[in-house]
Structure formats: C-alpha cells, structure tokens
Design a protein around this nucleic acid. Structure first.
Lengths: 230, 230
DNA sequence: TAACTTGTCAAGTGGTTCCTTGAATAGGAG
DNA sequence: CTCCTATTCAAGGAACCACTTGACAAGTTA
C-alpha cells in the first residue's frame, strides 16, 4: 500500500467518528446517553423517531465505537463507551457555539431568552449545598436521575413539577438543573417556579458537566445503571 | 415553530460541525492547518487532491465556521478559526484511537512499528533543553516551522535531512518532532538518524500539543503567520 | 489598460445517507 | 414447546456528497 493511500485510509478512519456524529438525531442520542444508559424504545421516544430508525442510528454509533450495548432481561441498553465521548460531544458544542453563527439563533429559538434566569455556577452551588440553604432540583426524567445525579439533589421530573410543587418548602431558594447547556427542562422549571412565587435559579450546564468536574454525585441501583468506566 | 422542530434544528446545527469533519480529506486539512495557515495550492498538494476539490473542501470547512481566510497579495490563506478547533480535532482522534478498533491497524499500516523509537515526553524535553544537552529538530516543511515552532528548535525538513545531516554535531542527542501523533515525519527522521549512527528519539505528539501545553514557542514573521487568537 | 495568477463556480456522474414500511430474529415468559 | 416482546434487517425512493473537467472571477503586476 502506498504511503498516500495509507494516510488517506487512516484519516478516513478518523472521519468515521465524525460521520457517526454528523446527523442531528444521532447527536440527540449522544446528548441523552451522556445522562446514562437507556433502552431503544425509550431513546426512540426521546428523539421523536421510529424504533426502527432509532435502532439504525444506534447501530451506526456502535459501528463507530461510540456506544456499546448490554442486554438485561428483554431490554437492550445502550450507553456511551467512555467519558471520552462526552468530551468529544462537549468539544463539538463548544466549537459550534463559538464559530457557527447560526447556532446562536437556533439555540435562542429553542431555549428562549435566558438572560433573566441568573445561572448559578458550580462552585457557588457547592458552597450553598454545604451551607444547607438551598434545594437542588433534578428535573430530568426519573430514569436519568436514577442513573446518576448531583449528591443531595431531589428528583421532580419537569412534567410533574407543577403538581408536586407543594412538597417543596416555600422559604428556601431552589436551584434546578437538567441535561446540559442546550436542554430546556431547567429553564422551563425556573420559569414555572417563579410564576408560582418561588425564588429559583438555574445551574450552569447540567449533570454531565458536574460529573466531569468530579463534584459529588449519587446514583440509585448502582450496579445496573451508572456511567462508563475507562 | 414546534418545540420538537426547534430542538431538531438546533441539533442539526451541531451535526453541521461533525459533517464538516466527516471526510478524510477535510480531516487532513484540519491536521495541516493545526500547524498554521497555508494557501490553497499548498494545501491541495498536502492532501494530494486537485485545487478545485481542495477549494471546495475548504469552503465546506469555512461554512461550518472551522476555518477563516485572509488574502495576502495574490494568495488566499486559510487558518483554523481558533484553538477550540484544535481541541475538537484532538478529541476526535482520542475517541478514534480508544474505541474504533480499525484505527490501530490503519495507524500501524501508515506509521509502521513505533515501539523502538523511545518517545520522550514533553516535561522531560523541557528539562533537557534547560540542561542544554540536546538538539531539538523540527522536521516539518519550512512553512510550518515559520508559522511556529518549539523554542530553540532547529528546522531541517524531512526531505532534506539526509543531505544536511553533516551540519548537526555528532555527539549530542537529537529529539525530532513533527505535526502530531499521527504524522510519520519524525518517525522517519529518527530511523534515518539512527541508521547514520546518531542517538535520536521522537517527541511525544507534535507541535500543536506542545503549544496547547503552553510550553515555550517561537515563530518567524510573527505578524503575518502564527496561530489564531480567541 | 492588458496579461497573468490564484482561487472559485457549475455541471455531471456514481456512490452514499436517511427514513418509511413490513418482515424476520432472538431471547424471555408462560 | 409456543407465544410474545423488543429489536434488527431489507427494500426502496428522495436527497445529498465527492470528485472531475472546463469555464469564470477577483485580484496583482507590468
């Protein structure tokens, strides 16, 4: 094999990784899987696609080595093959946010205006948790909370928040968080809480970034869920 | 616009970034541009493609915001739009090396066996440079050396090394470096130097990683070349 | 201004990707 | 063993992508 051809093949190999991420639906899958493992039907529902199509996308990701599977009873669970994939996904969002002009407009269209939400940064939240004068609220779906969440956080999925609001003490500030910087769940939660007269803010980014910063986390059913090692 | 549609559009936007990298030739372009700016004809030569096709690929990268252009006299120079793009490229290679089984085989086919080359790590090289008992050799093309190189390094492009060997003192260890972990230039240089009876090793990774580690660098023609700010 | 250089555009061809529909598997449950 | 459920496979059509060739555009130099 010629040197040129060998080099081309190697870089085609690198490009395979990018190809796997080069589709909006697969990007959404990575974003969901960054929260923890999920089964196919669940993922199909998350990205709003047919099960067949979702299965196809998952195989594409698996072929590129970005996700791996595990069977548990009748379900097949997919998860990211390592934290490196989370880093890659974060790097992609960073570049997109910094250099792809359209992204700002698209993010605004999806997320709405964020200026008034007063994000709280991770270090400040750590201090507030230590001081004990704040409630940390995980508004992601229950399965994601089970897979791993901020230590001492309480779970109220976004779609049940209005109903379960009464179970939250009224005189303590609430900090809501969700999947990451491009997830609406915490934004919507903060807006709802404020309409109901609570003092609420949004945590910067989301759970994967908190874990990446090696801040304290917990998970339910430690053995069967949780995140990749390696 | 529905929430689903807005979310899909946003993630399609992220996928645009990956699409730009989802081609081996474009990946090679990024790899070359990580060394510094280059003009189109030069880049076409580097990736072994026609100027027209190279121009097309460069526009694709530019549309995704990964590269920007600057005209200088009759030439148009492309460079990466920021260091974030270098990070993204590094993250991609990391994931590929860790999870895509094929990559190992392809890398071996292109690079040959590296075991015998004894890489030296960056921190060790910093100490050896301070001690002054080593020659650092940049074997990349002259244009890349001019755009930026390890402080105190000397430039002898790989294709001239055999002829200019005599200008190197015989009793000092030589450390060669090039573009990065997937570049053959330093490997070939070390092999050649050893055949000629010199003591030589290869630096881990290459120049972009050295710069990323914020270790001392220099460049010629500081104003017109060099790397992106931001 | 005219001639030249460099880079981009346009059209065409062969190949690949995405998503839908409907059928096939592979395990677990009864 | 048979049924059932979750997932995967296969076929097909519309859309998109890579690379070639040859023409065009935008500057620079004389």
């Amino acid at each position: 094999m010629g040197e040129r051809k060998a080099k081309d093949s190697l870089f085609d190999g690198f490009a395979e990784i990018a190809k796997a991420l080069a589709n909006g639906r697969r990007a959404e899958l990575i974003d969901v899987l960054a929260q923890g493992q999920r089964h196919v039907e669940d993922l199909a529902d998350q990205i709003g696609q047919s099960v067949a199509n979702t299965s196809f996308h998952l195989r594409t990701l698996a072929a590129a080595g970005l996700v791996v599977t595990r069977r548990d009873k009748t379900r097949i669970y997919y998860r990211l093959s390592s934290d490196r994939v989370v880093d890659l996904w974060a790097a992609m969002r960073d570049v997109a946010a910094a250099h792809h002009d359209e992204i700002d407009a698209l993010a605004a269209a999806y997320l709405g205006h964020r200026d008034e939400l007063d994000e709280i940064c991770r270090t400040e939240l750590v201090a507030r948790i230590a001081a004990g004068d704040v409630i940390v609220l995980d508004v992601r779906p229950a399965a994601e909370y089970a897979s791993g969440h901020i230590a001492s956080a309480r779970s109220i999925p976004a779609d049940r928040l209005d109903r379960e609001l009464r179970t939250l003490p009224a005189d303590v500030e609430i900090v809501a968080y969700c999947r990451g910087p491009y997830c609406v769940l915490a934004d919507d939660a903060v807006r709802l809480l404020r309409r109901r007269g609570r003092v609420a803010r949004r945590l910067e980014d989301g759970f994967p970034e908190w874990r990446h910063a090696r801040l304290p986390i917990q998970s339910l059913r430690e053995t069967s869920t949780g995140q990749p090692g390696s």
